[in-house]
């Protein structure tokens, strides 16, 4: 009953205008003539500047080398590959766990990306060496559309927050280069018939 009394008292209303907002979001975006070009704060993420990417503003790529378990490769690859193979006879192959499920056999093999003569680098199809931090350059040779989306921002995950300097993940941060397809798996939470 108290509430009734309270509500009864509400007949005399103050006149309040609702917040009016411009309904055209894209127009707002278009009208933002002052581009926000202020330097972005550093991301604090170990990264390298992306190289060889054109048409987009400079950005950084998550550093890869420190993430690798068996690097530098030259710590094992002290001899040419053929001699190493001879030495290993009878033992389990060093990269036994690597199964190439990337493209058809007649398209690529280990040597398509890994030059026999320089274990610590990758190589382009033309044989140009590419550092492991810039492995995206190797991927981009075939996956041009993905590379374009990645450089622009619609493919891949951003490593830094939205406000900081742009650092994106390397291709190999998410995709296993030897089996790049994402796996199928069970959802992270069980069935919910949440209402």
């Amino acid at each position: 009953m108290k509430y009734l009394l309270l509500t009864t008292g509400l007949a005399l209303a103050g006149c309040v205008q609702p917040p009016r907002s411009d309904p055209h979001v894209l127009a707002i975006v278009r009208r933002a003539s002052q581009p926000d070009t202020a330097p972005k704060p550093p991301s604090g993420i170990a990264s390298v500047r992306a190289e060889g990417i054109e048409g987009v503003r400079e950005f950084a790529v998550a550093e890869r080398k420190s993430q690798l378990k068996r690097f530098p490769c030259a710590s094992c690859h002290t001899l040419p590959l053929e001699q190493l193979r001879l030495k290993q006879t009878g033992k389990k192959a060093a990269h036994w766990d690597v199964e190439l499920r990337h493209a058809a056999e007649n398209v690529m093999s280990c040597a398509t990306c890994h030059p026999a003569e320089d274990a610590d680098s990758l190589r382009t199809l033309q044989g140009k060496p590419v550092g492991l931090n810039h492995s995206y350059q190797v991927c981009a040779q075939c996956h041009a559309a993905q590379a374009r989306d990645w450089a622009g921002g619609s493919h891949g995950r951003r490593a830094s927050g939205w406000a900081a300097e742009r650092v994106v993940n390397n291709c190999a941060s998410c995709h296993n280069p030897h089996a790049p397809a994402l796996p199928s798996r069970w959802p992270a939470i069980p069935r919910t018939d949440s209402r």
């Binding site: 707002i28 933002a32 581009p35 921002g153 951003r158």
Partner: peptide
């Protein structure tokens, strides 16, 4: 999101990823 399907950013920043997508 492990697939990178979700993109977030400042619509007023012409260099943001969201603006690139638009």
């Amino acid at each position: 999101c492990p697939t990178g399907a979700r993109i977030f950013g400042n619509l007023l920043d012409p260099d943001s990823e969201i603006r690139w997508v638009l």
